[in-house]
Every structure is written in structure tokens, then in C-alpha cells.
Design a protein around this nucleic acid. Structure first.
Lengths: 113, 113
DNA sequence: GGTTAATATATAAATATCGCGAATTACCGA
DNA sequence: TCGGTAATTCGCGATATTTATATATTAACC
């Protein structure tokens, strides 16, 4: 979901709550906070200045300990909520946190909840 | 869920995310933020100094526009997550926000997410 | 005690989520 | 174009959530 407005509305917030209402998805988001510590270095992504901090699906899968299909589905839920963004580079799809949305979410919690 | 520790753990946070992954429950929590504006004055609760800000189930039900049993269940989900607290006074059950938990939740979002 | 009002709980049916394996698609290199 | 690897989509059974109706509980009142 594109986040173009200044603030999250209730509907977007509920979608984020749903995305985070699963321990594995929360863990994925947490691991993506510090990719260098949680994942092995990604030569390709380091070379590509356009998507620093991105981690490919396979690496997330092995760290999260879930199947490939579940990983893909969970990442698409996180993407849909706006908490992460993705970029396909060659045959890999890289995901990283969308700090802008996360910041808006923080603000929502602080003001609307 | 009793909140006795300083910080929320991941499990407690996920339970809160689940509680908030429903628009109606979010609305209830928001309405409880300013009872005076959203609900008619409660003579009984004003008299009882022990539970300022509490709103009875029936009032929440009519404002939320959901059935009595759904209201009861939603409130119990919110209670279980620690986001609200309740007190029975006479034949009424009053619910109000648990600001302590909400503050811990905010802190969790800011540091762990 | 009997009645009534306010909540809670039990039950049930529809819908959604979980998490997997299999099939499919996307991309790359030879 | 073929084969291999990465990722997504599909289909499934199991589990959980949603929300209502019906019933039970609790407290107040006569």
C-alpha cells in the first residue's frame, strides 16, 4: 500500500495491526532492523546502491524457519501493510523495512491510540 | 493479562496487536480516551472515586453499534490484552483504558519494532 | 422468593488465517 | 532454448476468529 499522506488513517493502522498479529511476522520485521547482524552479507545488494538494507526471501526464510511459500505470503502481508518495501533484482526479491511507514505508525499509536 | 514487568515482551505485544486488528475494538479504545465527549454522564461512576473514566458495557455497546454479546467478548479481548481494565460496581461492569499498558505498548513500538 | 435489568458465557455457522507441499512463473547462464 | 535457482501463486486441511442467538449469572428491587 502506498503511503502518500502525512498520517495513517484507521484502516491502514488496522491493516498494520493485522500484519503484526503474528509472532513470526514481527520477528521478520525485527530481524530486518539490523540485516548485517542477522543475515550473511549480500554481495549483490551491497553492489546495488539502490536498495541498501534489502534481504532476499531465501535468507529470510532460513532465518525465520518457515517454508518458502509461507515466507512469501508473510512478506506480501507485510508489504501490503506498508511496513516493508521490496525490489526485484535479477532473480532475487529483496525486502527491507519501510521506515517512513513505521514512523507514521509510531505517530499513530502516540496520538490516536 | 497482568502487567507487572517494566516492559512488554513479544508475546504480550502480539496479543495487543491481535486485539487491535479489528476496527471496532480500535474504535472502542479510542472512544474510551474521552468518555465525557463520547458517552452521556454516568452518575454512578462519577460518585465512585475508585474508577474514574469507566464506562459501562451497555453504553459502549450502543455507541459501537454491535450486539451485546459481541460487545462483551470484544471487551474481554481488550481486557485480556491489558489495554483496558474493568471493575464491577453493582449490576454494571465498567471498563476504562489501562494507560500504563498503553504506555508500555508505545515504548515497545518505539524500541522493538 | 420472584421479577427484571445488566453482563457473561455457551453454542454454532460463516469466514479468515495458518502454514504446508505442489505447481507455476521469473530470471539467469550456458 | 534448455536447465537450474528464486520466488510467487494455488489448493488444501487444520485452526482461529467473527458475530449472532440462546442461555446462564449476577445484582437490584418489590
Amino acid at each position: 500500500m502506498k503511503q502518500e499522506l502525512e498520517r495513517l488513517n484507521d484502516e491502514q493502522a488496522v491493516e498494520i495491526f493485522k500484519a503484526l498479529s503474528n509472532q513470526t511476522r514481527v520477528s521478520i520485521l525485527q530481524m530486518l532492523k539490523d540485516p548485517d547482524r542477522h543475515f550473511s552479507p549480500q554481495a549483490h545488494i551491497i553492489a546495488d546502491e539502490g536498495f541498501v538494507g534489502g534481504v532476499c526471501v531465501g535468507d529470510i526464510r532460513s532465518k525465520a524457519g518457515i517454508s518458502q511459500s509461507t515466507t512469501s505470503q508473510y512478506l506480501s502481508i507485510l508489504l501490503q501493510s506498508g511496513l516493508v518495501e521490496m525490489k526485484r533484482i535479477g532473480q532475487w526479491t529483496y525486502y527491507r523495512r519501510n521506515e517512513e511507514t513505521i514512523k507514521k505508525f509510531e505517530k499513530y499509536i502516540g496520538t490516536k491510540i
